[in-house]
Design a protein around this nucleic acid. Structure first.
Lengths: 197, 197
DNA sequence: GTCTATAAGATGATAGAC
DNA sequence: GTCTATCATCTTATAGAC
């Protein structure tokens, strides 16, 4: 059985892929099953076979996003051993989403719309932010112990600040239509964290 | 003519008021003319008399929001002469919106949805962020000249950072359902700006 | 100014054929 | 699994009576 050529990507995955893009650019209330259908050569009714309700789709998508982000952070932390490289890599993830892919953070967008989103989705959004907080805190703590990060900063407080500033920088950059804004914030934060104490 | 009792607030203003609340909590795509109608004892069709299209309503609302915010900042700057009091007052504006009124910044929300929003609204959103940037830069610059803000900070860069961090802190706090998050970020930023150089 | 009535289209979702 | 057909409902918006 040489090449029975399975599709590289399943229809369900295709749906998830374009839904993610749609939410990151238009928001949870800014797209419909018909928008998805128009992008992947399927009828909107067929999407209900894979994801019966929009809530199901949202939950699956957000959970997948969290899991994948977690994997990326794990791999980033094992690839880079220094706090500077880790935090620069972290900021670059957000920068890539904003500048290269012209999107917001999925959970940043959903956080704004949190009151209109099914409960299952809310839970995943909160999980995302908690995981970012934990990862950043660990990186900063390790950086302090290695003498790389100034010992005067509180890792938890700066993890919180770093995350908030990057999420906000994406938002403001988008509102201004100017992506330089993001780099200014990211670079300034990195400078603060690595300032000699 | 003792008391011909004009209504304290016009119907158009009432519409603007509840629309602002709806956008700040649910987003531009998360509410309808019927939602407004249900909140102010009017029929949805009547709203079109005051604001023919949703775009008209959005534009009027965002413009009013920008203007009012500008007035508040002007009054804050004339009431408080010190950079510390001014920036604390500024952060308190965002805190009040998030914690007391359970809302996001109107333009923060609209920035997320920017691709689904009429062009007239986009323009106002960009204006809002530019005005924040200008005000914060001036406050920081004056603070440096008064020797109150550490001379080592760049006013423009920190204005950008301050704004992004507060907007992001509102977003993340909301996603986490935990408002302490916001205070951590706001206090940390203030500490950085006023650290002895 | 506000109402009722209604249009024209979008939305999430289901039933049943293939 | 995907289709066509259809649904009930919601959406923005207009026309015309009061």
């Amino acid at each position: 059985m040489a090449s029975t050529s399975e599709p590289v990507i399943s229809k369900a995955d295709e749906i998830l892929m374009v839904s993610q893009k749609l939410i990151q650019t238009r928001g949870y209330n800014g797209f419909s099953y018909r928008d998805i259908a128009a992008l992947i050569n399927i009828k909107s009714a067929s999407i209900h076979y894979h994801f019966p309700t929009k809530g199901d789709l949202g939950r699956a998508l957000t959970a997948q996003y969290c899991d994948r982000f977690d994997q990326i952070l794990q791999s980033l932390a094992s690839r880079e051993t220094g706090a500077r490289a880790r935090l620069e890599g972290y900021a670059a993830l957000f920068r890539d989403t904003l500048v290269e892919r012209k999107r917001l953070c999925l959970c940043g967008m959903l956080a704004g719309e949190v009151e209109t989103v099914p409960d299952e989705v809310k839970v995943e959004v909160a999980r995302f932010f908690k995981e970012q907080q934990v990862w950043l805190t660990q990186v900063l703590q390790a950086g302090i112990e290695a003498g790389e990060v100034s010992a005067s900063i509180n890792p938890e407080i700066w993890a919180t600040t770093f995350l908030a500033a990057l999420e906000g920088a994406m938002l403001v950059s988008r509102g201004l239509g100017n992506h330089d804004h993001f780099d200014v914030v990211a670079n300034n934060l990195l400078e603060m964290v690595f300032a000699e104490a």
